[in-house]
Design a protein around this nucleic acid. Structure first.
Lengths: 208, 208, 208, 208
DNA sequence: GATGAATGAGCCTTCATTCAT
DNA sequence: TATGAATGAAGGCTCATTCAT
């Protein structure tokens, strides 16, 4: 039995990850986690503030790093001159998207937790937060290339939010499907085209 | 004292709906539901098998009816001749979509339950089920109008599943946003265009 | 074994009273109470809101009744004409004090709880509340018989509060000492004299 | 980084004092204390026997010193000749009382602990102990000036205990009220008069 | 069928104290 | 001595479900 080579801390993180993935945050049981890690419940409280603190320890560094990267990508794009932005028409360059996908695949379980097991924690709105930022930068982009002509303003905001959510949810579906990393990148390329075409069609219908 | 004109059964359903909406299935408390309905917990077990039975009673008839309608719509479309199918290129007719939206708005809370409060019940996969059927009929459609040329077969299935999910999630976002019924229909028209354009762009890139 | 002739509710109240008396509110254990009452912890929650609800059930009716009586006594005294008030010089009549003592002896344990085991509950300030009211009426009394000449105003308020507290604490000491009822009444007569004399001496030193 | 110039021992004492004052003995947490003192829980057990040992370390020297002083005061008074004792009639001289008040104000927090946060420790009966001694010397005093005529013997003992308790509680109320030192002394002078008058009135009603 | 009690387990959290390094 | 982990128990509270009347 060559187990327990890792410390209690590591084992707790692992077992917590497992439990949270299986049952979601609220249904996960600290007793279970501790038992699986061969330690006592109290052991958790020595190392983490509380249940949410345990969840946070797994997920927070990953979130922070991703957010940072994500905003960098946005800022980089927004820094391009009008022609280039217009030519790319809001599509991420492949390199940038690949970078983000790589990061997600490097931290696959953390992202699964964020997507499907964070109800009840302060990370509940993770996807919404991404969407919010993306939409914000889309507005900046629209300032540069011209306001959309295809949709009346009143609907534009909601619609933008909805399709942006769709885009991200699509990306996360790719992750959830458990595809390999390179495969995922190919999918995201197609998905990017899909959404970009759709976006143009309803927001800039005359641009073609 | 002319109150409680509704029977216990109705009150239980109403209060359960409320509780499930507020807390989701697993977090909902039968105690609370019974208390709000001015009756005893056991009163629930007289009328429903158990917690899930109560949830089911609210949601199942609506699901069944929707599924039936949904499949009818699909069958109708599939029954059209090739030219017509091809011309519509996989888009729902407005009338059909409106019919489904109307049904959802007529049973708004039940759908909210299905979308956001069904984790832990056998309805957890409600959206997936819709997607599965939609994808199935999309394959039939592809048999009729010709296999897609834009995507290699190996990827097509996953991709189809993903974008179809996006489409439905978009529709449910509309519902979640709390829009009025007619407004929702306008959104769905745009959303239909969005997805149809994207769909054509990646599956039938040469058709334009 | 002719026990458990009383219902669970009564047994819970009794065992709770016992436990609270022995350990004080915060240290009392609901598990213990339930065990002693031969029932489950949950049984408490069926009948009472929570720990404080259990304490409240024992103590609240007694508090309410006493407060009511107490204020009646005060109002009655305050309704007397100036000469009578002046003659009695703020002393309770024996009948009134006896009435209150009787009530306390009729609910002896409840008062012990209030005095010595209510820390952590909303009854923590029970004595202070009595004092507050007594002081309030002492001020009214002073308006009638003339402002005190013995103490500068700045000190009077604090001093009044302090000696009034002493008076009540003395009364409760009598209760705590476990004296018989009639004995207690004799003590309170002497204690009344003690404080009345002291009160006159410092607040109305020239009145003699 | 010139912080933590005090040693661990001192910091522990300080933080313990704080915690005990805030929460009382039983509710205080050694974890908290250690954390606030920037050290480990075990660190407490190296220096003190246990929780009560920590409390004792703060409070015991102060108690001992006060008791000593207190008994000195009593002995001094008892050493006076009969006439002087009689003339003062059991009142502390101002100098003696001031000395005790000064000592309390020099160790204010320790006294607050004794008064309001010692439940659960062997100092719980601190006030009672003071009262016991005071009563003991009052008896000696009565031997000197003559047995009281106002109260039958059977009641005298209890009564003496009760009013003596009142006296000390009054003194501690002054402390609790957070008054300044000199102000407190003025209050104690009035309080002394109050109790002395009351005492005479019930124990020696004919002496005036 | 209605009521309210009982069951039995589980939840997260906190504690004082001790052990091993 | 300092550190941090482990121990072992208990805390209040809530749950879905069943039983007895």
């Amino acid at each position: 039995m060559a187990k327990q080579i890792e410390g209690v801390y590591e084992r707790l993180l692992e077992c917590a990850e497992q439990e949270f993935l299986e049952k979601g945050y609220t249904e996960a049981s600290l007793r279970n986690i501790a038992a699986n890690a061969n330690t006592s419940t109290n052991s958790i409280y020595v190392r983490f503030k509380d249940k949410e603190g345990l969840f946070t320890a797994i997920v927070e560094p990953v979130v922070n790093k991703l957010m940072e990267t994500f905003i960098n990508v946005q800022e980089t794009f927004h820094g391009l001159d009008k022609e280039t932005q217009s030519r790319q028409m809001g599509q991420y360059t492949e390199g940038e998207m690949d970078k983000m996908l790589d990061y997600m695949y490097d931290n696959l379980n953390a992202f699964r937790l964020l997507l499907d097991a964070s109800y009840g924690t302060r990370f509940h709105n993770f996807v919404d937060e991404l969407v919010r930022i993306e939409v914000e930068y889309t507005y900046k982009y629209m300032e540069v290339v011209g306001r959309p002509a295809g949709v009346e303003d009143a609907m534009a905001e909601n619609l933008l939010h909805i399709v942006t959510t769709s885009y991200f949810e699509g990306m996360f579906e790719v992750i959830r499907h458990g595809m390999g990393r390179e495969e995922a990148k190919r999918y995201m390329r197609l998905l990017g085209k899909y959404h970009h075409t759709g976006f143009s069609a309803i927001f800039y219908p005359d641009s073609d």
